Simulated assay, not measured.
Amino acid sequence: MTSDGPETLTSLVAATLTQDGGPDTIDTLWPRCIDPETGYRPSRTTVWKFASYGRAETVKISPPLIRAVAAGLGLNLRRVQAAAAFQYTGYVTSELAGGTAVHMPGVDASEASKSKAIMDAWTEEESRLPGNHSAE
């Protein structure tokens, strides 16, 4: 990806590796890749595959895997999720009041009235429940 295009999971992983000027090797990155919710730990080989677009295509993506990689990289989970979404689906994300919209590149998600109405309804529903759900 070019520096002005959306991030990919591969670009995030490659940027942290010493071969691309980063502080890590696979052997220093991989041990930190632990899903904080489930304790899932991907294999060293799985983490290594993310450093190359060709190898990354062979990985089965799952929420625990993305959370583990985000933890290992020390990056915000939503950023890593957005990078994975773009790499594996071609969709991009936009933050809107009430949530994150996933959409085709070039679409102005803030103008998507149905999406906005759905997010507004969800925000209203959550506000009636105890706890701060949008912060979770």
Rank of each mutant, 00 (worst) to 15 (best):
G5E: 14
T8W: 05
T8F: 10
V13Q: 05
A14T: 10
A15R: 14
T16F: 01
T18A: 14
Q19T: 12
L29T: 04
L29N: 05
P31A: 08
P31L: 11
R32T: 03
C33N: 08
I34N: 08
I34E: 14
I34R: 15
D35F: 03
E37Y: 04
G39W: 07
G39T: 03
R41S: 09
S43V: 02
T46S: 12
V47P: 03
K49W: 04
G54R: 13
T58P: 00
S62H: 05
P64A: 02
R67Y: 02
V69L: 15
V69K: 05
A70M: 03
G72W: 06
G72E: 09
L73M: 04
N76L: 02
L77T: 05
A82D: 13
A82F: 01
A83C: 09
F86L: 05
Q87I: 05
T89V: 03
Y91G: 01
Y91E: 12
V92Q: 11
E95F: 00
L96N: 10
A97P: 12
A101L: 15
V102E: 06
V102H: 03
P105L: 08
G106V: 08
V107C: 02
V107D: 06
D108K: 11
S110A: 14
S110Q: 12
A112H: 10
A112P: 00
K114H: 06
I118Y: 05
M119E: 01
E124H: 14
L129A: 15
